[in-house]
Design a protein around this nucleic acid. Structure first.
Lengths: 114, 114
DNA sequence: ACTATATTTCGGTCAATAACGAAATGAAAT
DNA sequence: ATTTCATTTCGTTATTGACCGAAATATAGT
């Protein structure tokens, strides 16, 4: 018996919304997200695990990195509904606007490891 | 400049979801909702003010009572999207099922004032 | 004006959660 | 095998949010 989770809870945190919008641009590893959000890596990891647990995103290990990406085939229809119209549900504000710019310019080989 | 509020935050609380589903049956006053949720009136009032502030519901004073009802013409399209398909977004569980039964049987003149 | 009932506002407590840094784990390169 | 870097897990702290009861406000009836 699977208990019905409240998908809105996963979306109630502003930083998790920012992450979703960033992943809309392209898959990212934890250290790239950490760099952009200016949070501790452990905090970002937690947010990602919430989004993954709910089915919004998938992880894909690539060597020492873990890429996170939007889940294209979520089990839950409500999650599909949100993800397929992310711009409708989560409008851009200044913060998200600049996040997206940073994602476009982000290069893992420069951001990480230095 | 109106700051963009996170509509998901208003929906992240289980009791607020219950209230929305109850109001789907019929408009209710605070004391009826209080009776069904078994919370303090002040707590229910807080929940209602959040839902009202976000545009999910409207209030309509009727003498000493204040009726709350689903907003049929929300300004925010996302809120329309949620409200027009409330059953899709907020599935029934046992709790909500019995809430709705209680709403159908609820009679303000018996519940309040005694 | 006074009383009764409904509701909201206020001040405070407690629980949930977002945040951090440190330690543990995973994977690759030396 | 050891080092290095990315990530996760753990333990703790700070913040936020749900909740309550008491006091304040609103409305209607006496």
């Amino acid at each position: 018996m699977k208990e019905s989770t409240n998908i809105f809870k996963a979306l109630s945190d502003q930083n998790r919304l920012r992450i979703l919008k960033m992943l809309q641009i392209k898959p990212l590893c934890v250290c790239e997200i950490t760099e952009i959000l200016q949070l501790a890596a452990s905090t970002v990891s937690q947010h990602l695990s919430v989004l993954k647990k709910e089915g919004f995103i998938l992880e894909d290990r690539d060597g020492k990195w873990v890429n996170y990406l939007i889940n294209q085939r979520p089990g839950d229809q409500r999650i599909s509904a949100v993800l397929s119209q992310l711009d409708f549900w989560i409008g851009d504000n200044q913060l998200i606007e600049t996040d997206k710019q940073k994602v476009k310019l982000s290069d893992r080989y420069k951001v990480c490891g230095t």
